[in-house]
Amino acid sequence: MINTAGRSAGGHGSTPGSSLPVGELKRFDLVERLVHWSMAIMMLTLIVTGAILYLPILALHIGHRGLIENIHVITGLCLLGPLVLGLAGPWRKQLLMDLRRFDRWGASDFDWFRTVARRKGLARDKFNGGQKIEAAFLGAAMVAALVTGVIMRFAPSSWITWATGATLVHDALFFGILAAVLAHVAFALSRPDQLISMFNGRISRSWAKTHAAAWLSELERSEPAAASSADGPAGGSSP
C-alpha cells in the first residue's frame, strides 16, 4: 500500500506504450521536469548570490551588495513558485504522487540505508532512502530559508531580536542546503542514466528492475499491456 496503483504509469496524459521507446519507462513527466529545472536554476542563483553576500572574500571583491541582495531576495521569493504552480492544477498527478513517495517509507527504504555503506544499497521504490531524506530536507530547508529571509529583509526594525535569530538560521541553512545540493549534483553526475531521465523523462526497464523493482511492479500492475509490451525478461512477470 505504498501507493495506490494506476497513477504513476505513463506519466502525464500520454499512453506510454505508444510514445516510449522499447524497454524504456516514464520516470518523470513534463511537469516534474519543468519544476525541477526551474527550481534548480533558482537554487543555483541563490547559492551563488548567497555566497557572495555571506563569505567576506567574495563580499569584498565582488561586492555590489545592493544588486546582489536584490537578486537573492527576488529569486528567493520566487523559488517555491514552480512547485506551487506544479501542484496547482490537474497536471499535478504524478508530481503529487512522487512527493508522497518522499514521505512514505517502507522497509526497503530503511534497508537501503543499512546496506548503502557496503555499496549494495538497492532500493525497491522509485526513489531510494537517501533521495527521499534529501528531498524532505531540502523541501523543509527551502521553506525555512524563505521565512527567515523574509524576516531578515522585510521585518520592521523593532523585530531585531527575531532578525538575529533568523540570520542564525539562514546562515546555518546556507551550509545545509549547500551540502545537500552538492551531494545531489555529485550523485546525479555519477549516475548518468538517472541524470538523463531528468532531461527526457525516461529510464530503462533494466535500471528499474535492479534499482526500483517495487516501482516496476506498480507500473506493471497498473498498465500491464504497456509495461509488458516493452520486451525483456520482465515482460512475463505481469500478473
Binding site: 517509507w105 524532505a136 541553512l173
Partner: peptide
C-alpha cells in the same frame, strides 16, 4: 508489508521546528 512510516513528514517537521 508494514504500514509506511511518514519519515518525510517527520523530517520536514523536524527541520521546521529547529528553524
Amino acid at each position: 508489508p508494514a504500514k509506511p512510516v511518514h519519515v518525510g513528514r517527520r523530517t520536514v517537521l523536524g527541520v521546521l521546528a529547529l528553524a
